[in-house]
Amino acid sequence: MGSKKVGNQSIIFQNPPFILAGYNIVGPKEGEGPLKDSYDQIMKDTYNGEKSWEKTEAKMLETALRGVADKAKVTVDSVDFVLAGDLLNQIISSSFAARQLGIPFIGLYGACSTMALSTALGAMLIEGGFAGQVLCAASSHHDTAERQYRMPTEQGNQRAMYAQWTVTGAGALLLAASGTGPKVTSATLGRVIDLGTTDTNNMGAAMAPAVADTILNHFQDLNRQPDYYDLIVTGDLGTVGLQLLKEILKKSNFPMGKNLSDCGVMVFSPKQDIHAGGSGCGCSAVVLSGYILNQMNSGELKKVLLIGSGSLHSPTSALQGESIPAIGHAVSIEIS
């Protein structure tokens, strides 16, 4: 057993990798949201000149990956691995983007928790001495996700009040063994938790127990209290899921303070008619690589815990009436 693992499921990095830069690209709706100033690129429409939304999503991810390397003044060829994932069948957006980059690719599937997962694994590669520089990324596109998981975009349908809106966006981080900037200091990898939610429109409800489980274990494993962090932010629970998370933690005798928020709640404004907030791999990816990183680099935030939340169902399992298993992966990012 390695001595870097602590408690049930956490890892402490002894030489924490640096986040040299972050880069993101979002769709027009996200570009009108409250975090609009934190995006590197805002697309004019959801196609962005491509013939299909799938092509657009792969292109977005490639743009984010190349963008972050440029920003950090690193050539793509000097990067050891790219770790990326998305929501589409066989994670095509990621592999199609990696096809263009020509460097070793590790495809990940953690559903909407992918950004936290790729960051945790990227940091582990560097900590273990297996890589000097890695790209960590995730993407989602509202229209490709709707096509795969729900129904055709032009089909008339009234969305439930607790439904969330998949973020069109891709975000990437460049992690390196040396440099300056915020550091990935620890990670808590999640367990698959399922409390029997079957409604695929209520993703927040499906994922909240898994996130709560990861939070409880993170704080026990590292023997910390919530006020250790300036911001504890979940991936894409939305308003309903965030409320549920607070109640679950309260019932588990671990109440949270005011520093708890959610990327899905932050990414859209209630005026945008998106109901319970944003969702998708891109949600936490664009908030982490944009807003959170900027706040850390400017000194507004010093210690942040991101818990990426993913629901691990498939369209088939949902149609067959299976309940929705979910997972939460946490990474803590600190700047001194």
Binding site: M1, S3, K4, K5, V6, G7, N8, I12, I193, L195, G196, P209, A212, D213, L216, N217, Q220, D221, I248, K251, S252, N253, F254
Partner: peptide, 15 residues
């Protein structure tokens, strides 16, 4: 550094 398995915590809630 502690290496012991501490389980639980688990969330205190039935389905």
């Amino acid at each position: 550094m502690s290496n012991s398995n501490l389980r639980p915590p688990v969330i205190n809630l039935t389905p």
